[in-house]
């Protein structure tokens, strides 16, 4: 195949509106995966951070286990664990066949993964607050809850917003790992398209543009939000 023919084929793929629709649907799925996983991650992150900052040694240990286990293994393995190993274990234990929804378990796996990173982000946001703030709140006799709610967390929140946004952007890209288990998202859509056209690379490039647009839009919005947050300081 000469170069002219190759570009002709690319042009054929690029000029078919159906292909954009396919990729757009894939992109929407990627956003759904990333969004659910992100929110899940924040919830798990708050829980994880309160475990890791807890006075109770055992709870701290639990928090550490979660973070180290997840951050110490590739996300791909975690996805495969939830798709392949977990159902096998459940089948072994219950004796009944257990079939999972790839999309759901994949999203859960990514959410649990994100939770470990969010734990560290939130934890460092909280411990990054100047000791004087804790002491001032304490000397003003605020209860622990009021201190967290009105003094510490609002300040931690501001510090945590920028890394949380980049975590979301990371998740949009990481959601592509779901293609390994054949769950629909942007990369998988591009792979299907590649197989149909016997041209693997070009659809991937197109998907790349979609990823770029999504992440660019999100980081632009994030910059505006950050600026507004900074103004209130």
């Amino acid at each position: 195949m000469d170069i002219q023919e190759y570009f002709g084929k690319c042009l054929e793929i690029a000029s078919n509106p159906e292909n954009y629709k396919t990729l757009l649907i894939g992109a929407v799925y990627s956003l759904i995966v990333a969004s659910i996983a992100w929110v899940m991650g924040i919830v798990l992150g708050i829980i994880g951070a309160s475990l890791k900052l807890n006075k109770n040694k055992f709870l701290r240990f639990l928090g550490n286990c979660y973070v180290e286990l997840i951050r110490g293994t590739p996300m791909l393995l975690q996805i495969l664990f939830f798709y392949l190993i977990m159902p096998t274990l459940i089948t072994l234990i219950t004796g009944n066949a257990f079939r999972v929804n790839k999309f759901v378990v994949g999203t859960i796996a990514i959410g649990i993964n994100s939770g470990a990173y969010s734990t560290e982000l939130i934890r460092s946001g909280i411990i990054g607050i100047d000791a004087g703030q804790w002491e001032a709140a304490m000397s003003l006799n605020l209860s622990h809850w009021d201190m967290m709610r009105y003094v510490i967390l609002p300040q931690a929140f501001k510090q945590v917003v920028p890394p949380m946004v980049s975590e979301y952007i990371t998740l949009i890209k990481d959601s592509s790992l779901l293609s390994t288990i054949g769950a629909v998202e942007l990369l998988y859509s591009a792979q299907i398209m590649g197989a149909n056209y016997y041209n693997y690379l070009f659809p991937l490039m197109m998907a790349g543009v979609f990823y770029l647009v999504m992440t660019f839009v999100i980081s632009s919005i994030a910059k505006k939000v950050e600026r507004r947050l900074a103004e209130s300081d």
Binding site: Y83, L84, A97, S179, T180
Partner: peptide
């Protein structure tokens, strides 16, 4: 039909009852 790039994962999914 569920398509996947990797035959190994397909077979593992078969073994795992997926």
């Amino acid at each position: 039909v569920e398509l996947n790039q990797d035959a190994n994962i397909l077979v593992e999914a078969l073994k795992a009852g997926q």
